[in-house]
Design a protein around this nucleic acid. Structure first.
Lengths: 107, 107
DNA sequence: CGGGGATACCTTGACAGGCGAGGTATCTTG
DNA sequence: CAAGATACCTCGCCTGTCAAGGTATCCCCG
């Protein structure tokens, strides 16, 4: 278990949606992007990532489609739905809120 | 489930230790103090609180003793051990770290 | 005096999310 | 041809949260 594993628990969905709000993407790319954005400090485990995809799709927050697999391995692309977008912006606000709370409690 | 419940998941131990680092205390008081410090924005569920006590004590991060129960209901006081203190300070640093990571991922 | 609310503790069991471990298939490069 | 990158996926364990339920004491109000 990495240092930050438990602390980021609960933000998985928002982190994934943050990428999909910008553009449709697929698992492997999202994972690499997370590592890049955090300078390698954080890496989402694959199992976590894919179970999140299933959860989000089941909840109607994202949809998926197979990419053109003429070259390389096939890719399953994900796209945010309108309710997924709302969910994301709401989650971002909640993060700001939670941050204030925790900061108040860990002086 | 309150808005911020999932987001604070994983900080329970640190939040409790933060209070005990200042002074020995007991469950009910800690809970009230959390509510006060967050202006009522956050309240730890009792079951969560007490299961955290058990976990922390098992791990040797806190110890407990019964308070003088001549008046009122009996109180079980908790005190931080040296390793509990180290754990707390380490957790606080990890929180700063996690905060930076999440901020980077939720633009 | 009786009842409700505050104080104070505790346990059980269900549930959800993270993730280790394992698996598949393709492409590129030395 | 082997190794490593790309790309996907599942099973099942573990841990933490918490709804629900329980106990006992004290104080105040009508």
């Amino acid at each position: 278990m990495s240092l930050t594993a438990d602390l980021i628990r609960g933000h998985t969905d928002a982190i994934i949606l943050a990428h999909l709000v910008e553009k449709d993407s697929y698992g492997y790319e999202i994972n690499k992007a997370i590592q890049a954005k955090t300078s390698g400090d954080y890496e989402m485990k694959e199992a976590t990532l894919y179970s999140a995809f299933r959860r989000l799709e089941r909840a109607g927050l994202i949809t998926s489609y197979w990419g053109d697999a003429t070259i390389g391995a096939r890719r399953r692309y994900y796209a945010v739905t309108p309710s997924g977008q709302r969910f994301y912006y709401q989650n971002r606000e909640e993060w700001q809120h939670a941050k204030r709370i925790i900061d108040a409690l860990l002086p």
